[in-house]
Computed example of a mutant assay.
Amino acid sequence: MSISLLEKYLPNYCLPYLKEWFANYAIHIKITRGRNSKLGDYRKMPDQSHQITLNSTLQPQLFFFVLTHELAHLLAFDNFGNRISPHGVEWKSTFSKMLSESISVYDEDLKPIILKFLKSPKANFMASPDLVRYFHIEDYEDESSYIEDLEIKDQFTYRKQTYIIEEKRKKNYLCTQLKTDKKYIFKPLARVEKIN
């Protein structure tokens, strides 16, 4: 897929950065339907080309952010070798540099969040509460809440199942599914619907 075909998914003014980062690499971009498990991923292919998949449902700035994350894998492996950790120091410094270079692409209210994030990039988007909150503002104008906003012993539904919050463990929440009595760990920014 050529960079220009990505334009409908991207925010304004980001193509010069992508053209520089793509350079002469053979990169196959696949746009997928929304996946709950991940926003994007990177793979080096057997023929030495590169494949990046991205969710089609991402807002333009988040699409660009995730694409930058995945391209940082490619550039880190290319610059430092294949033996580096996927989300290790080399990837973090590469991703951080790319975010810093392209900061002008992001909206003014998002820039401080990106600048804070790039000081110590996280492997998982969900590990950055500020980013999660920012990108979910428009998506959740319904009755859903973050689990961190609920109290111990509150009941909630998640994916059509009912749970009760048992306790907080460090940052996460231990919950019991009422139907099966099984225990599950929820991240603080899991979107749930509180039962009143």
Results as ranks from 00 to 15, higher is better:
S2T: 11
L6C: 11
L6D: 12
Y9T: 04
P11L: 03
P11W: 06
C14I: 11
C14G: 07
Y17N: 10
Y17E: 08
W21P: 01
W21N: 02
F22S: 00
F22V: 04
F22A: 02
N24M: 02
A26Q: 10
I27C: 00
H28W: 11
R33H: 13
R35F: 07
S37D: 10
S37P: 03
S37L: 13
L39D: 02
G40R: 04
D41R: 00
D41S: 08
R43S: 13
D47S: 10
Q51R: 12
T53H: 04
T53M: 12
L54T: 04
L54C: 06
N55E: 11
S56I: 02
T57P: 01
T57A: 11
L58R: 03
Q59P: 01
Q61E: 15
F65M: 13
V66R: 04
V66E: 06
E70Q: 13
L71I: 14
A76W: 10
D78R: 14
G81R: 07
P86Y: 02
G88M: 08
V89I: 09
V89C: 08
V89Y: 10
V89Q: 15
E90A: 14
E90L: 12
E90G: 13
K92A: 13
S93W: 00
S93L: 13
F95K: 01
S96K: 12
K97R: 15
K97L: 04
M98H: 07
M98S: 08
S102P: 05
I103S: 09
S104P: 09
Y106S: 08
Y106F: 15
E108I: 14
K111M: 11
I113C: 12
I113R: 08
K116L: 14
K116G: 10
K116M: 13
F117H: 15
L118S: 07
L118T: 04
K119Q: 14
S120V: 06
N124T: 09
F135Q: 05
F135P: 00
H136R: 13
E138I: 09
D139S: 15
Y140N: 14
D142V: 09
E143D: 14
Y146V: 01
Y146G: 01
D149T: 12
I152R: 02
I152G: 06
K153Q: 13
Q155R: 11
Q155G: 01
F156I: 01
T157G: 06
T157M: 10
R159W: 03
R159K: 15
E166W: 05
E166L: 10
E167V: 01
R169V: 01
Y173F: 12
C175L: 04
C175G: 03
L178C: 09
K187W: 03
K187C: 00
K187T: 07
L189T: 06
L189M: 14
R191F: 07
N196L: 13
